[in-house]
Design a protein around this nucleic acid. Structure first.
Length: 820
RNA sequence: GGCCCUCUGGCGAAACGGUAAACGCGCUCGACUCAAAAUCGAGUGGGGCAACCCCCCGUCCCGGUUCGAGUCCGGGGAGGGCCACCA
């Protein structure tokens, strides 16, 4: 062994050995319990950054640990390679996205290999590969058959400069991030997934995800947004139409003094009276031109116009005016609201502005009075007790809601209902770099699905990117012109592509049989490996990817492809790696630290240790050159320690019992370290405290020089433990050290495959312990007692302690003895 | 506005309701060196004290539960995240 720790000279060698030995291949231990460890696959735009280094280090440490624990571990990797960022980068530098993406993948793969991640590289996938996206198309067809995919009119962000639809992420303050032109909303036909049909199941499923971070499940709950309320029909006075409103506060309906429609509401034109027509039309036209955020954002002033119409409140028989206002959203609820200004702040502000009546119908349940509407300063929005509500007066809000909903149902003018915040997922993109949607438009047969045996519909290599607003694929005649699958006559292909989130919704299943040409994946393997045991990724995916992922898995479950309805048991959301200055790493701040550069400088093991030691996985961390130096120093010390203790390498196991002097204490430290590291891995992925324990063991070993065989044996035990415990974190260094201690006996073995060490529980407790003594809750002294001492004995020792006695003038009331 | 998270030395952080600050960084002092770097050793929350004996104070603030609270409960503050005129 080289006397100096030079990671650059050893790391590539071990990486090669692992690969040759195939130790990271999944499925090698059919008898063992399987574990699927997954990290969110990277979007290979540009080079790998520190955030990637962190996710994969976390997952890798866990995968390596589980392998050493005897599990059959699936730990795959791939690339989320289709999508807008790649296409935009391509537009910017005039290169084909495929070419650029391929290069980026090469660079990512190299960086990941250099960090020593234990991926099963034979399962590598890239979503831009037709052998992958053909299954997106396959799922599309299946979901079309089941009615989960449908065509609708949808709203899109239309950039007036680029003349194309762009993604939400690209819209910054109503302007296009690329050309700074105005972005407007445009209604165009699009394909959508009926994810709303799964809203209830996606919501209920969250209850079972007990090991997901609560903030993630909470965000999903809010996003799905179940709200229980009632629908009530307000009949138009002097007409046959009915305005259906949705409310969560039907208990306040007797306080309704007007009704408001969204500008886009289908009844808007029909209800407007001739006298108001000009004003209403002008208002609607203006709203149409205004960007959604500006119109309905919180800062936007409430604006509306009167239609001249009146509608009848079915509970009171009273006719109330019908208005149109900017803040009512056509797509939520029924696109119409009943306004109760006394008990809804938004309605209150609107009523004030337009001098509409305000009527109090709820009184606080706990006493006190709400003043009459004309004296209110603000709406009172809490539940209370109804008043002035006819037969429903005097009821608590909750009860009033129930009875009034029932009353509406009985009268045939409404009833209890549930509304969701979740919208269907529009996945059409007028873009090139995505999965082509397998549909052919025929003059005679309309939209015809491409037959399964004609998949994949391949993306044509000719990328003609944008300009006119038509999808780029529309400009490739070889692609567009085809024959109708039904009648064979000339027909045109769908030229839209799928949202990238489709690719990432099921990739984890493709890893099971990545080369399968007959189906997306093998259901038999899914039964063995799914659901994913641990999924590591950033919390920014809480409501997009992680919801689509759950939705897609349910669909696959219904298709009989998976046994369980949920895709993933446990989710770990890792924090951000910030720059050394504590700000987000960015070119703007000139604080970007490249993983590759750091690996060159310190070696992969030091970078990995930094990622794991800086803080628990879910916390944000700041890159710190000083901390990195410290971790490199740690590995150097460990290295030198092994070098200095070579004399102990040959010690016999059997000599352990003779360990005397400070060596029984060393053995205790060794076993406590094993315990600490093991528990840290199993419980909360507390890598940082595990590594700290290894540092303590090293500190202790540094001060010990064995003189007899028992001492040498104890040192050898500690060194072997250290090498194996270090293996998930700093695997290259661990291999090297382990082989040194083992000598010829370990020549053909790899620590990556060694069994994880076990600890002797009896050795983790000391013979004598220090017990802190508290009097009246204050620390007043400490006593040394045998670890096996009985309570009475400890108590006697404590009471005998002179310091403690000084505080015991009376008698102790209670004593609680604790063992350290 | 709603929902959620966080708050502990100079810094990153530890701590089944039981000696707060393990471990690392930084800093100070010492050893080695002509010197420096590297390395090794010692110290390092604040205050009192001649004293590294000991005492007091210390986990954002206020209150509570408890023999005992960084940890549990209630209220408040600051910082951060997500959603947001969602009826």
């Amino acid at each position: 062994m080289n006397e100096r720790y030079e990671p650059q000279t050893i790391e590539a060698r071990w990486q090669k050995r692992w690969e040759e030995a195939g130790v990271f291949k999944a499925g090698r231990r059919p008898q063992a319990e399987p574990r699927y460890v997954l990290e969110m696959f990277p979007y290979p735009s540009g080079a790998m950054h520190m955030g990637h280094a962190r996710v994969y280090t976390i997952g890798d440490a866990l995968a390596r640990f589980l392998r050493m624990r005897g599990h059959d571990v699936l730990h795959p990797i791939g690339y989320d390679a289709l999508g807008l960022p790649a296409e935009n980068a391509a537009i910017k530098d005039g290169r084909h996205p495929a070419e650029r993406t391929a290069e980026n993948i090469v660079s990512f793969r190299a960086d990941m290999k250099r960090l020593g991640f234990s991926f099963d590289w034979e399962r590598e996938i890239a979503t831009c590969d037709p052998s992958y996206y053909r299954w997106n198309q396959w799922f599309f067809l299946k979901m079309l058959e089941k009615g989960i995919v449908y065509r609708r009119q949808g709203k899109a962000n239309w950039c007036t400069g680029c003349m194309t639809v762009i993604a939400n992420e690209q819209v910054v303050d109503d302007t296009c991030e690329r050309c700074n032109s105005k972005v407007v909303e445009k209604v165009i036909p699009e394909w959508a997934f009926r994810i709303t049909a799964y809203a209830d199941r996606l919501l209920e499923g969250l209850d079972g995800l007990t090991t997901w971070p609560e903030r993630i499940t909470t965000m999903q709950r809010n996003w799905i947004g179940k709200s229980i309320g009632a629908e009530v029909d307000f009949a138009l006075q002097g007409g046959s139409e009915k305005i259906k409103v949705f409310t969560t506060r039907v208990d306040t309906i007797h306080g309704c003094t007007y009704v408001v429609l969204a500008p886009e509401h289908p009844l808007t034109a029909a209800v407007t009276r001739p006298a108001q027509r000009a004003e209403v039309e002008a208002f609607v036209a203006r709203m149409k031109k205004t960007e959604a955020a500006e119109r309905t954002g919180e800062g936007a002033p409430k604006e509306g116009v009167f239609t001249g119409a009146h509608a009848v409140n079915p509970f009171t028989g009273e006719a109330v005016p019908v208005w149109i206002a900017n803040f009512v959203l056509a797509e939520y609820g029924t696109g119409a609201v009943m306004s109760v200004p006394a008990h809804d702040q938004r309605d209150f502000e609107f009523a004030r502005k337009y001098r509409l009546p305000i009527r109090t119908v709820i009184q606080p349940a706990g006493g006190g009075r709400t003043p009459p509407g004309d004296q209110l300063e603000a709406a009172t929005t809490e539940d209370g007790v109804t008043e002035g509500s006819g037969p429903f007066s005097g009821l608590p809000s909750a009860q009033a809601r129930e009875r009034m909903s029932a009353h509406a149902a009985a009268g045939g003018f409404g009833g209890a209902t549930v509304r969701w915040h979740l919208r269907d997922w529009g996945f059409s993109r007028q873009r090139y770099w995505g999965t082509p949607i397998p549909i052919v438009y025929c003059d005679d047969h309309g939209a015809v699905p491409v037959p399964y045996d004609q998949l994949p519909v391949k993306l044509p290599p000719q990328a003609i990117i944008t300009g006119t607003g038509e999808p780029p694929l529309a400009k490739v005649p070889e692609f567009v012109n085809t024959a109708c699958p039904t009648c064979g006559k000339p027909a045109r292909r769908e030229t839209e592509t799928m949202d990238t989130f489709v690719d990432s919704s099921w990739y984890y299943a493709r890893y099971l049989s990545p080369k399968d040409e007959t189906r997306p994946f093998d259901p038999a393997l899914a039964r063995r490996w799914l659901p994913v045991d641990v999924y590591v990724g950033g919390p920014e995916h809480a409501v997009m990817h992680l919801l689509y992922f759950r939705f897609w898995h349910r669909v696959m479950h219904e298709l009989g492809l998976t046994a369980e309805p949920e895709p993933c048991q446990r989710l770990v959301t890792q924090g951000i790696v910030n720059g050394p200055d504590g700000r987000k790493m960015s070119k703007r701040w000139n604080n970007v630290v490249a993983p590759g550069y750091m690996v060159d400088k310190f070696g992969a093991d030091t970078v990995r240790l930094f990622m794991l030691f800086a803080a628990p996985p879910e916390k944000d961390i700041d890159w710190s050159d000083e901390q990195v130096d410290g971790l490199f120093r740690f590995l150097t010390r460990v290295w030198r320690l092994f070098h200095a203790r070579q004399a102990s390498f040959a010690a016999r196991e059997g000599a352990l019992a003779q360990a005397s002097g400070p060596f029984p204490e060393l053995r205790r430290r060794t076993h406590r370290t094993i315990k600490k590291v093991t528990e840290g891995m199993q419980d909360d992925l507390k890598f940082n405290t595990g590594i700290a324990a290894l540092m303590e063991l090293m500190n202790e070993l540094q001060g010990l020089e064995p003189r007899d065989e028992g001492g040498h044996a104890a040192v050898r035990e500690a060194l072997l433990a250290m090498a194996t415990l270090l293996a998930p974190f700093a695997p290259h260094c661990a291999e090297e050290l382990w082989h040194e201690v083992m000598g010829p006996a370990g020549r053909d073995r790899l620590v990556a495959e060694e069994p994880w060490p076990s600890f002797d529980a009896a050795l983790t407790v000391a013979d004598t312990v220090t017990v802190a003594v508290q009097v009246n809750g204050k620390l007043r002294g400490e006593v040394q007692v045998p670890a096996a001492a009985a309570e009475a004995e400890v108590r006697a020792a404590a009471e005998a302690d002179e310091k403690v006695q000084g505080y015991l003038s009376g008698k102790a009331l209670k004593k609680v003895v604790y063992v350290k």
